[in-house]
Design a protein around this nucleic acid. Sequence first.
DNA 1: CATGAATGAGTTTTCATTCAT
DNA 2: GATGAATGAAAACTCATTCAT
Lengths: 199, 199, 199, 199
Amino acid sequence: MGRRILKNTRREEIAQALYRCLLRKPFVRTTIKDIAKEANLNHGMLHYYFKDKEEILLYFLDWIVALHLDDFNTWAQKQKLKGRSFNEALSLAMDYAKNKITLNEELAKIFIEVWEIALYHKKVRVKLQYVYKEWIEQLVAIIGKETTKKNATTLSVATVAFLEGISLFHIMLSDIYPVKDILNSFEKKIELVIKNRNI
Amino acid sequence: MGRRILKNTRREEIAQALYRCLLRKPFVRTTIKDIAKEANLNHGMLHYYFKDKEEILLYFLDWIVALHLDDFNTWAQKQKLKGRSFNEALSLAMDYAKNKITLNEELAKIFIEVWEIALYHKKVRVKLQYVYKEWIEQLVAIIGKETTKKNATTLSVATVAFLEGISLFHIMLSDIYPVKDILNSFEKKIELVIKNRNI
Amino acid sequence: MGRRILKNTRREEIAQALYRCLLRKPFVRTTIKDIAKEANLNHGMLHYYFKDKEEILLYFLDWIVALHLDDFNTWAQKQKLKGRSFNEALSLAMDYAKNKITLNEELAKIFIEVWEIALYHKKVRVKLQYVYKEWIEQLVAIIGKETTKKNATTLSVATVAFLEGISLFHIMLSDIYPVKDILNSFEKKIELVIKNRNI
Amino acid sequence: MGRRILKNTRREEIAQALYRCLLRKPFVRTTIKDIAKEANLNHGMLHYYFKDKEEILLYFLDWIVALHLDDFNTWAQKQKLKGRSFNEALSLAMDYAKNKITLNEELAKIFIEVWEIALYHKKVRVKLQYVYKEWIEQLVAIIGKETTKKNATTLSVATVAFLEGISLFHIMLSDIYPVKDILNSFEKKIELVIKNRNI
DNA sequence: CATGAATGAGTTTTCATTCAT
DNA sequence: GATGAATGAAAACTCATTCAT
């Protein structure tokens, strides 16, 4: 394995280690040593692979976003999403979003953390905006075939906002309300609203 | 001003100071001295009025929740919300939620911070759950008059989840998407869905 | 009660409060507020009655020494100690020392604390030296009648040293060794040695 | 020097530094920075080698106890203590105790400090009890050959108590009384009492 | 590349002391 | 005489970062 590749492998391992750390502690309370330990590396090495703690975070964000975009693209190809009818494509996409994103508790937890960091951190905010833009555009690409761009965008933003709200509630209110069931009952309703394109 | 009252006043001032600090920095990076400075107090005094930094946070949460619950209750009385027809009450409540909560950027920012803290902090999580439970129950109280309790709860949870998702997007994606307009277009739609009670 | 007297009463109450505090915490970890609370006083008042924390300590030392010297003198008078034979006086004095000083656990605890402070604190050391000098001289006064001053001093210093060593062991090693019984078995032996004046 | 060894060396150096600090200041007033300075280390390093200040203290106690036990064992071997007659062994042991322990002013000072800490600190108390138990048992091992176990224990406890009392007086009353001479006059007397085994 | 020792800035917390009311 | 609010110095502890080996 070449040096360049090894370096990238190590960087990914560090990102994964940070992922696991974030399931236990917020980023600010996660120390360089915590991450190093989780990655089975000497903490000094983290400064060999990354300039500082912030750079680890930024790399981590790129890594986790790419991971899920790749997963989505692979899935979309396997499902031949582009060849599907509008209705089919929409249903499939909603299912993917629901199961892989909205109800993915680890991801939800980490994204709350990322939202918080983004509040006070320009670079992170930019990356976060990119993530949601990508997601919304993917949905627009599906819906957009059958309505105006503006309508499609409105529906997409609203849908993703709803899914994100549900995601929050899923990890925080599931002992009080049947959040998952509520999402399931709304899934079809949303599809219907989108199909009717009447906002 | 009596001593007891002064103590409570100071505690509120400290809570307000923390509020302003949180608009600039996350809680963990907000130091006791930051809060003290913002409250025009000696930092030693914060430990006079509160046992430690955590106690300030917990007081702050109670304070900000009470503040908005009081505001809502005052508003509800002034609007004679209980005497209204279902349709009127629902419209008014949606308007209140939209303007005072969802589109309140400061509040949104602070609540993202609170969500993040709640992830790793049991006591904060409990308080946050209480807030959403209260909010949802208020909505159930309005909707519930005309449908089953289960339906009302489902609609309420979904509505609040949507509003919270929009709130996130409003502070993070408003340069990219017309989040406020999107919320406005959906406001009536949601009312319609609720009035039809068909999920 | 006159002002002067009230002030002295208060000072004694504070000394007593410190006494109780020292049964729980070392002096350095006993705060002014701890003492004030124990004395049912406002902590600000402690600085009215005493210049600073050190002065409280010095007053406390005088108070506790006077308390026990008074007690001893009262007892000595009641026992008509001066009119007794050498043997009787010695036995009585040993009994007093044993029961009121050596096996007095509270006093032992407090005196370990005082010894420690004295190590690094000149004024306290002087007071402590005075206490032991007094104690030893009292014994010399009894023994001295029947031997040389030098002999009497040697025996007295050794006796008090032994009693102090036993006192330490009594509060620290009583779960391991029957320290009280050991003291009792030696009491008569020591009297015998003293009576024989052969060192 | 290996890393493991360095770590232990450093820990010992820190213990030694604390030893020197305690000759000047009580433990509570000895700061982490004081110890670090005395050990020619950065204060941060103390938290690298030890979890906290308490751990330094506990290590220090183990270190100083081991130091003197080792010294005693080395001495005992060189003196062939086990091969000696009872009388010889007792005399030698008394001499060792007198010169290396009782009249060792630094040690006495530090042990007063330790006694005081032990008063309010369980773990330290346990270590201190161990020290005296060891010391007393060593003496019992010598005396025990010629009398009952009970007698030997009584004599040993009393002897060590006396020596400790003298040790206190040696550092506190030597300007007033010839404590060292008094100890010397009693040394033989004690040996005699022990040899006669009549308590 | 790898290790872990070293640095020092920064943070929370405690508390004696002062002082206005 | 009381009270308790206010001050600020000092201390323990944490941790990102650097660097010699």
